[in-house]
Design a protein around this nucleic acid. Structure first.
Lengths: 187, 187
DNA sequence: AAATATACGGAGGACGCCTCCGGTTATCAA
DNA sequence: TTGATAACCGGAGGCGTCCTCCGTATATTT
């Protein structure tokens, strides 16, 4: 990689991080290029799709999340799952529109986010299974549905930025359910 | 209202219904105007904001939903709530992007959907309270959080059109919770 | 039939995405 | 040091969408 290319790549990454944080993940790519002092063509050469830019920006925080998932396997299963869920929600709350992008990455093998999303899912799957084996989580629940519910919660919370407790309340509801007495074999 | 205006209004409504059903609620307004054989200016005069068009298109189905809510007050509380939740989900699944629009209408008093959304919420509130009084729904749950969860589920399901059971599974999960034994006073 | 209130249409400015290619520059070999 | 060349850069331009504005046309009324 040529030195000038590297320089531009780094600048773009920095400005993209800034822009995503400020304007959400749909920030204007032309703005990002301009802020990086680079033509729009250069941005597209380095990051052919918006998702490529996203994965690059998020790499560090996602690595941290995966490490946390690893660590939690040593904890008490029920609590480990709860903490993991909170961590996921908190991460998605980091950037407006992120949950929408992640849910696309979850189902579209062509998305640059596909691999990452499935690593996260696998990380959660281990914790869910532990909880199920310990008898503290419904045995018929799949990690796919759990992750989707999580995305849904993050999506909702994103729309109520004035209510900081929103995501936690919805997550608690998901954990405990609407019904007072759960009826496992009713549905 | 002048006769030609009325004619154009009706045509726009019909074409909008068609377009929303086919392309989702973000369908191009210029396309709708063209399909109705009308200038874009005419569309904007009749429906200054996209939401005005949406409420007009949805009026009938929402009236039906409200009537159903009314009817359900006569049923057994727990079952009534469950049916109502399913009906809401089914309605949102009608049009791609609808749940996103509704959740905006829920919080923004300036939105043309505000009134409608709160009528629906009120309708659900009656059923939730009945269920709570009957001891079959968590007493600390608010209708606001319940409706938001519903929107989240609809949003997720919208992204998995190939999985028709998606919404129902997530709704069941919401009803019964992740945990096997709910811990009411734990959170 | 004339007057008037009402409604129509689409040009045009703004913005965002993405492609394409003529011009520039870093790098390496001689 | 000096070409040669492969790699890289920039932004104009085509496209689609939103929304506004105002000169023109037409329904309605007197």
């Amino acid at each position: 990689m040529r030195a000038d290319a590297r320089r531009n790549y780094d600048r773009l990454l920095a400005e993209a991080g800034e822009a995503f944080a400020r304007h959400g993940i749909d920030a204007s790519l032309e703005e990002i290029a301009k802020a990086a002092g680079v033509g729009i063509g250069t941005l597209y050469r380095h990051f052919p799709a918006r998702q490529d830019l996203i994965v690059a920006v998020l790499r560090d925080s996602i690595d941290a999340l995966l490490a946390e998932g690893e660590r939690l396997r040593e904890e008490e299963p029920g609590e480990a799952l709860r903490v993991w869920l909170h961590a996921q929600i908190a991460h998605m709350a980091t950037t407006r529109g992120l949950c929408a992008e992640l849910i696309i990455g979850l189902k579209d093998p062509a998305s640059p986010l596909y691999g990452t999303c499935h690593l996260i899912t696998a990380s959660g799957d281990a914790l869910l299974r532990q909880a199920q084996d310990a008898g503290v989580a419904r045995p018929d629940l799949t990690i796919q549905d759990l992750v989707k519910s999580l995305n849904g919660i993050a999506w909702v919370a994103e729309r109520f930025p004035d209510d900081p407790g929103q995501a936690d309340r919805l997550l608690s509801l998901l954990l405990d359910g609407v019904r007072v007495r759960p009826a496992l074999h009713e549905v």
